[in-house]
Amino acid sequence: MLALNLVFYCCLSQVNNKKSVPLDGMTYSQLMQSASTKLTSHEYASALRDFSQAFKQHDSIGKYDYANAMVAAYKLDSIQLALNWFSKGVELGLGLSNGEYEYFNNASDFPGLKDQHQYQASLVQISEKLNNQKSDKALKDKQWFQMIERNGENVKHNNGSLSVGFSLYWNDSGTFKVPYLVYLPKKSINIKNLKTIVFLHGGVVSTPEFSYQESAISSEPIFKVADSLGFIVIYPFGKKSYGWVNQKEAFYQILDIVEEIKGKYPLVDQEIYLGGMSNGGTATFWFASQSKTPFKSFFTFSGNCELKVDTIDWKKIDASRSLYSVNAIDDNVFPKDNIQRYYSEKSVIAQGWHLEMVESGGHGFIYDPTALNLFLIPFFKRFLNIK
């Protein structure tokens, strides 16, 4: 398969929900799937026919559809058609995601296009968009940091009323001064029955620095769930050199953060929970197997069942402090067979451990746009016993 297909294959058919009109018995989606199969098999002429037919019957073509069609056209020396499809893809945002600009700028899979004026003009267009993205991101990140820092300094909770939004705090009980967020949801909260989620993020092993200055953090699904159900989120930050993967001290510092925040917010001791995603989900097994923690129960999304810093004491995960794990069947980071094998072996000992498998979504299934309403909100309603 061409390198282009390796980059874009998962998003080959980026279309909306509009129904397409069948042509020769095949819908747009069917034609695109057929074209993809033929492109992979180097049947370029047949793939090009499928792409061309599909584009004639549909008015909402995805950028990666154009990218793959460009390859078929180029392989058949239809240079102008390849250039036109590349230009249309660029207009839709092709080239702006991870590594795409470098790929197209290198053009090793289609050297005959690189010297074309139209191709170079499209590269310039991508470059300008990327620069604008960087400028916009820098401004948003600056405004974000100013806001969370200001909120952390000015947090107030008088007469049972708490300030809504994100606040930044620092804990210096360990080797590193660790930043963490506290999020108060938009939905009004019940002070007397206040529920708190400590959420450990994923990607720790690939994060060089604490990412608290990234405004994109605000779009994490856990905060959207909090808005819907009305609970507080404590969101510590980890990084490769100090996080909940290889450094046990970072695990203990999470416990210190919880105690610290109790002095700032009226947390209810019996309603504090912990869980996380990927590396954060894996780390949750450590907390769930400790003799004493402040957490009522635990959850993991796309977590593994092996710790690097310690062994899991499975017998301590009992019915009094349940652990609910959710993994995707098509997760290629922590394969389902491994997870299910562990569950089969250990759930007899860890009688508080419950495993659920979702059909699709891969390792990052919680980030699927449909996951919020179809899975996350119903899951946390059950987990937190919210009616």
Rank of each mutant, 00 (worst) to 15 (best):
Q133G: 08
G62F: 05
N98M: 10
Q133V: 04
G93E: 07
V71M: 15
G99V: 03
K142S: 14
D109L: 11
L81K: 12
A107I: 03
G89R: 09
F145S: 06
E91N: 14
D109N: 12
F110Q: 06
E128Y: 10
S135E: 13
Q143F: 01
D141C: 05
G95H: 04
V90W: 05
Y101S: 00
M70H: 07
Q146H: 10
N132M: 11
Q80F: 09
H117N: 13
S122W: 02
Y119K: 01
E102L: 11
G89I: 05
A73H: 06
L92A: 14
Q143R: 07
V90R: 02
S87Y: 10
L83S: 04
N98R: 13
Q57A: 13
N132V: 13
D77W: 02
A72N: 11
Y101W: 01
Q118W: 06
A121E: 13
N106H: 12
L123F: 00
V124T: 14
Q143W: 00
Y101I: 00
K63S: 09
D115G: 15
L96N: 10
I148C: 02
Y119E: 01
F86I: 04
S78I: 10
D77E: 05
K137Q: 13
G99F: 02
Q146R: 12
K129S: 04
D65I: 04
S78E: 15
F104W: 09
S108D: 12
L94I: 05
W85Q: 04
A67E: 00
S78K: 15
F104D: 00
F86P: 06
D65G: 12
Q120W: 02
